[in-house]
Amino acid sequence: MNVKTPGKDPYNIIITGVGGQGNVMASRILANMLVEKGFDVTIGETFGASQRGGSVMSHIRVSRMGTWSPQIPEGRADIVAALEPIESFRVLARYGNPSVRVLANTRPIYPATVIAGESSYPELTEIRELIEKLSARAWFLDITGEALKLGNPILSNIMMIGALSALEDIPLDREDFAKVIARTFPEGKREDNMRSFDLGLEMMRSA
């Protein structure tokens, strides 16, 4: 098998979002796809109270050299996938660097203080500009909008994995996704997930 190797070891991926968006599920599926490719993967995440609408983040470390710290050191993220757009700022502030790439879902989830009018949420155009400034390359996809069309916004996390698979330097592919999904979900749910994966990939290709 000809395995594309991430250029860097360990290669560091961060998936971020808001509790309830399926962050943990996404990181586990993605990590298991990379395990299928023969990499040693370490995931670090916090959950528990995080289902209560707080910021969440999973660190995924992909290596040929065994287990790494479940927390990525400062300034060392290679890819940031944000299921909620402004969460990318929180991640970049600690783990970003000039060569980081960002893939962001454009659908906001407003923090309580924003809803209450105590703080303000930036406009999408501003978010795009700022993320572009802080990254080597950035993509913005209305993933939740498309997932709603599929009938279930929770599929956004799977679409994000599909979108990430379009990136050349992470060896994520559809067959591995299908294998992992077969282990993770009951029969009835697999088709929706495959469709979401494909849709994410297409969105990214036409972005």
Partner: peptide, 20 residues
């Protein structure tokens, strides 16, 4: 970079407190 990113986050990413 991190200094700029921190400054950006402090204005563009309003605090997200845990909520019910």
């Amino acid at each position: 970079y991190l200094e700029t990113a921190r400054r950006t986050a402090s204005v563009a990413a309003p605090v997200r407190d845990q909520v019910l």
